[in-house]
Write a protein that binds this DNA or RNA. Structure first.
Length: 217
DNA sequence: ATCCCGAGGG
DNA sequence: CCCTCTGGAT
């Protein structure tokens, strides 16, 4: 199977099995999504969604969050991973939105990554979800799953993987493919012990083919 | 014990 | 490149 055929298999498979893959984060506007994505690092979306309503109620916009005491924000998010860092990042991020971006969330990756707490992965999520830009956020799931299947070759960094994925997936499907690979990584292609025996991607997966050959000898 | 849709700093 | 941050669910 060529790499193009592998991509096509993945597209066909997930179009059929997960046609509506989307983020589970709850938000109403770019500012809320930005807050939610910053909080989501090393944390389940469900837990993020449990804390964001209180944050959005108390700090409805960047102006309000910019004036917040870091410790007050900390109290609101203390049940989430890394509450100290994230509280600091959220307030710093809001201050920069007000000071540098007229209180609006910028919608370019280059501008977004200048915000505290916002790295390339977060910037790609925001621009693709909010503005439908053909950007691929590569987190640990996407990185691992893409490498195993063979959608990326010799990609040693998330950025290298991102470029390969973006160049192979049709532009209109990049956003969806991100969620496909995350879902697959979360429920089937687990980090430690992938559930290959129940995986529908087997025919297109280099990792599975390799296991198969190893078992025969 | 191990895992969750990372980012910043050394 | 490595380390740290750090809480809750399973």
């Amino acid at each position: 199977m060529t790499i193009q055929q592998r991509y096509q298999f993945i597209i066909d498979y997930f179009q059929e099995h997960a046609p509506n893959a989307e983020t589970e984060l709850i938000y109403d506007n770019p500012y809320q999504l930005l807050v939610a994505v910053i909080l989501s690092a090393q944390c389940t979306d469900k837990r993020v969604n449990m804390t964001t309503p209180a944050i959005f109620a108390r700090y409805p916009d960047p102006e309000a969050l910019a004036k917040a005491e870091v410790d007050d924000v900390f109290q609101l998010i203390r049940s989430i991973s890394y509450p100290n860092n994230k509280a600091k990042h959220l307030v710093g991020m809001a201050k920069m939105l007000v000071g540098q971006f007229h209180g609006q969330v910028p919608l370019t990756v280059d501008e977004l990554v200048t915000l505290p707490g916002v790295g390339r992965k977060t910037a790609n999520v925001i621009t693709s979800v909010v503005d439908n830009q053909p950007n691929m956020a590569v987190d640990t799931h996407v990185f691992r799953v893409a490498a195993r299947i063979g959608l990326t070759r010799n990609a040693r960094t998330p950025l290298a993987a991102e470029k390969q994925l973006v160049s192979h997936f049709p532009e209109a499907l990049i956003h969806k493919a991100h969620h496909w690979l995350i879902l697959h990584g979360r429920y089937v292609c687990l980090a430690r012990s992938p559930k290959c025996e129940e995986c529908g991607v087997q025919p297109a997966c280099l990792y599975f083919q390799k296991q198969l050959r190893a078992a025969k000898t």
